[in-house]
Design a protein around this nucleic acid. Structure first.
Length: 688
DNA sequence: GAATCAGCAGTTTTT
DNA sequence: CTGCTGATTC
């Protein structure tokens, strides 16, 4: 044994980690507290399996993000070299897709099926609401969608009507239609990738093939799995004796996405003879920070007991800072950063964590004013921007002409004289003739009651698309970018953006976004092993909306990030801002009394991001929606331990602000003289 | 068919 | 205060 593992340095693992790496023969649950070396355990475990002679393609590692999969692959390669190459590492959705790619016809899909993301789904529902006039009042389609998806995930036949609220009613009416439409459009949503895969595995003719495919299955972030993901794992892993899962129930913060923390709590019940290993030695934070984290999370009733501890010292006390208002809070943060940077800390050592995105704005403004470089993590990803989505919608619809959501999105873009009225007439024809919208467009000659102009417009559109379609549908990837470029040129998409009367700044942004589509295509084309043409590209982009431009130039910047997105990250210095009632236990969570526990876990996640220093700040007044309101400190602050490790202070309004400004000025003077910049030249931004 | 206006609601969101 | 939707107007 020892010889076989010569490449793995087991001495760097603690006894629990090592037990988790070496365990064999029964299902394994690793309860990995924050900062306890979870990723190390998984990568070492996979490396160990490889060195034991398990072929890489028989090992499946499942993660929640592409980023995590990528990181794991890199770290595994370091440990196990080229053997790591064949290990199957993928997200749940990608796993589902790879199953459906082989056996899609079993669940009634056709070749070229499209993957709808949330905004496609919302458009579909909106369109249905309009057409069926289900809702007399204006209802938010995305809220209806929430209910529809919840029912679908539970494989309910109907959306239950409990309280008879409008959203429930609409969801109830639309649910069967939604499923019907998705089927007609040959489209699946993210959940369908999982549910469809489960259906494939339940098909007797395919079950065996799939349950034999993987010899070992490892799952990361198990606390975030949903019931359908659990089903998929069970069907794939059989009795589960070679299933190992790693997670932390205290960091389960995605109930809204369907995650059920119960999966992790019930693991040892669901999988017979499962072994449970707790990792609670923390390698990230000081004990003062860990004590605070432990104290807060201890107030959650239902959880696996873990008490994080560290072999390192107590470190600095954590600070609870009372601020008169949100402005002062932001200034306190900026001032403190500036002061510490002046003392030798780097900007990238700092992160500012908040509950909701809109809190980021004021922080951004203040940092900009103080000339502190920052980056905002999260927010809209490239593939969510309108112009990008428009371009992709063209491609999606050409790849899958039954994809009506995409077709409707682009049919009059740029405006080509096919307005709502024309479209409605054609839709009626399509419905009465029982053909797809695209087929109807192609037979525009047979549709009565269209104006000559509209008729001609439709004809032109059809001709334009058909002129490019064959070339684009080819399954080869080479030359794809060029063909798409031709299509976009013919459509005049770029010109359309140019013609808008946006400001130069916005316009530049939009063009940049638009051009990213072609860049992404070229990258895809050049990628070794990309094949499958447009279809593959589209699925890839649908499932990979991760950070595109993460690495570049983000080095020396402060990070602004939501608590949700901060999970898995760590920073030497962390500000947890907006520690207020209605904000950190978010108002909605308190009102619905549904899950205060999840809010507390969010707080816990935030605290445990900090390695050395932690500030928890709140404001006594905050301007929300244009009105100033008094605010109360978060109840979670009361749950912090009393005494030495925690200092409670007040940021007085002008003191810190001025101090910060002075520090900023001093700093910039230094920078300028170092860089040899004349101060007068660099006054592009008003300092006021 | 496109531009403008009024009214309303406002968490988080790995895919 | 903002951003989005639907309705109204040109």
């Amino acid at each position: 044994m020892a010889l076989k593992h010569a490449h793995l340095d087991f001495h760097t693992l603690n006894p629990q980690q090592r037990a988790a790496v070496e365990h064999d023969g029964a299902p394994l649950l690793v309860l990995a507290g924050a900062g306890s070396g979870k990723t190390r355990v998984i990568t070492y475990r996979i490396a160990r399996l490889l060195l034991d002679g398990i072929p890489g393609e028989r090992i499946l590692g499942v993660t929640f993000t592409n980023k995590a999969a990528k990181e794991m692959r890199e770290r595994m390669s370091e440990l196990a070299g080229s053997r790591a190459r064949d290990v199957q590492l993928s997200t749940f959705q990608r796993l589902g897709l790879s199953i459906l790619k082989e056996d899609y016809e079993v669940v009634g899909l056709r070749r070229g099926f499209a993957i709808y993301d949330t905004s496609d789904q919302t458009s579909l529902l909106r369109e249905m609401m309009r057409r069926l006039s289900v809702a007399d009042r204006r209802l938010d389609a995305s809220k209806v969608l929430d209910r529809v998806l919840a029912a679908k995930r539970q494989r309910l036949e109907e959306v239950p009507i409990d309280w008879g609220d409008d959203y429930e009613f609409a969801a109830h009416e639309l649910y069967p239609r939604y499923r019907e439409q998705m089927r007609a459009y040959n489209a699946v949503d993210f959940d369908d990738l999982i549910l469809g895969a489960v259906d494939v595995l339940r098909e007797p003719s395919r079950a065996l093939k799939w349950s034999n495919r993987f010899q070992h299955i490892l799952v990361d972030e198990y606390q975030d799995t949903s019931p359908d993901q659990l089903e998929l794992l069970r069907d794939l892993a059989g009795d589960g004796h070679n299933l190992s899962v790693v997670g932390d129930d205290d960091q389960s913060i995605y109930a809204r996405r369907g995650a059920v923390a119960d999966n992790i709590l019930a693991f040892t019940r669901q999988f017979a003879a499962a072994k449970e290993i707790v990792l609670d030695q923390n390698y990230r934070s000081t004990n003062n920070i860990l004590r605070a984290a432990n104290a807060v999370i201890a107030n959650n009733a239902v959880r696996k007991m873990k008490n994080l501890w560290s072999a390192s010292g107590d470190g600095d006390a954590i600070e609870v800072v009372a601020c008169p208002g949100a402005d002062e809070e932001a200034e306190f943060v900026a001032g403190t950063i500036q002061r510490l940077v002046y003392q030798g800390q780097s900007y990238q050592d700092f992160a500012i964590l908040y509950r909701s995105n809109n809190q980021g704005r004021l922080l951004e403004e203040t940092l900009a004013l103080e000339r502190i470089p920052y980056r905002v993590v999260g927010g809209q990803s490239l593939f969510d921007r309108k112009d990008v989505r428009d371009a992709l919608a063209y491609l999606s619809f050409i790849n899958n002409p039954t994809d009506e959501v995409s077709l409707r999105r682009v049919i009059n873009l740029p405006p080509r004289g096919i307005g709502p009225k024309t479209l409605q007439r054609i839709t009626e024809y399509a419905e009465s003739s029982r053909v797809s919208l695209w087929s109807a467009l192609r037979r525009v000659d047979r549709i009565d009651g269209l104006e000559t102009r509209a008729h001609a417009s439709v004809g032109n559109f059809v001709a334009l698309i058909e002129g490019h379609a064959d070339g684009l549908r080819a399954r080869t990837t080479s030359g794809l970018a060029e063909r798409v470029q031709h299509l976009f040129d013919a459509l005049g998409l770029r010109e359309h953006i140019l013609e808008s009367d946006d400001t130069a700044k916005v316009l530049g942004r939009r063009l940049e976004n638009f051009d990213q589509v072609l860049h992404a295509l070229r990258r895809f084309e050049q990628q070794a092993g990309s094949s499958g043409g447009l279809e593959s590209f589209l699925r890839n982009t649908a499932l990979a909306r991760d950070s595109e431009t993460e690495e570049e130039s983000d080095v020396s910047k402060v990070t602004l990030i939501t608590l949700h997105s901060a999970k898995g990250l760590e920073f030497p210095c962390v500000f947890l801002v907006g520690m207020e009632e209605d904000l950190l236990p978010h108002r909605r969570a308190v009102e619905e009394a549904s899950d205060l526990g999840e809010e507390r876990r969010l707080c816990y996640v935030g605290i445990t991001r900090a390695q050395q220093r932690l500030w928890l700040t709140y404001a006594s007044r905050r301007v929300r929606y244009g009105k100033g309101e008094p605010r109360n400190p978060s109840r979670f602050l009361d749950e912090l331990p009393e005494g030495e490790g925690v200092i409670r202070t007040a940021a007085n309004a002008d003191g810190d602000g001025e101090e910060a400004e002075a520090a900023a000025d001093a700093f910039f003077e230094r920078m300028r003289s170092q860089l040899g910049i004349d101060p007068r030249e660099s006054s592009d931004e008003p300092t006021s």
